[in-house]
């Protein structure tokens, strides 16, 4: 997977959290071709297609999702309830959209899908068998969140 893809996705993630969640993220070591998905209760996904195709996924625990949603809406995390799916969908949408814009400067032209969010405590997301994957771990205060890029076609 090209370094530009990873760098632009990391930049996009930092920008979204700093401007919309008012939090800085500490970045962990990227995990290329990680097996399985990180432990999470809330997963947002946005697909993209064009000169490259694939998926951007955002993984968080319920506590992290409440903190993110509360920060976006000006609420205490304990007050957050039904707002989580939409807020995490929008976070995923902004990360993928900002990533798309940054890659356009590298000559890539993609269309992106509207976000999908899955919530629960016992589910498994099966990765594409033919895709290259990289998992980007981040820490937000006491919570781990992850951004994953799955590429099924690359320019």
């Amino acid at each position: 997977m090209s370094e530009a893809l990873v760098t632009k996705l990391v930049e996009a993630t930092h920008e979204v959290f700093e401007t919309m969640v008012f939090q800085t993220l500490d970045q962990g070591e990227p995990l290329p071709d990680a097996q399985g998905a990180p432990k999470s209760n809330v997963v947002g996904t946005v697909g993209f297609a064009g000169s490259a195709s694939g998926l951007v996924a955002f993984y968080s625990t319920l506590d992290a999702a409440k903190a993110i949603t509360g920060a976006m809406l000006g609420m205490e995390p304990g007050e957050v309830n039904g707002e989580i799916p939409d807020a995490i969908g929008e976070i995923t949408n902004m990360i993928a959209g900002s990533f798309r814009t940054k890659m356009a400067t590298e000559g890539d032209a993609w269309a992106i899908s509207v976000p999908t969010v899955t919530m629960g405590s016992d589910f498994y997301i099966k990765p594409f068998s033919n895709g290259r994957r990289i998992l980007l771990p981040f820490r937000m205060n006491d919570n781990d969140v992850y951004v994953e890029l799955i590429l099924t076609k690359q320019r």
């Binding site: 993928a96 959209g97 798309r100």
Partner: peptide, 9 residues
């Protein structure tokens, strides 16, 4: 208000 910020967009 959008994430679409490429010049063509």
């Amino acid at each position: 208000v959008t994430t679409n910020a490429a010049k063509d967009d």
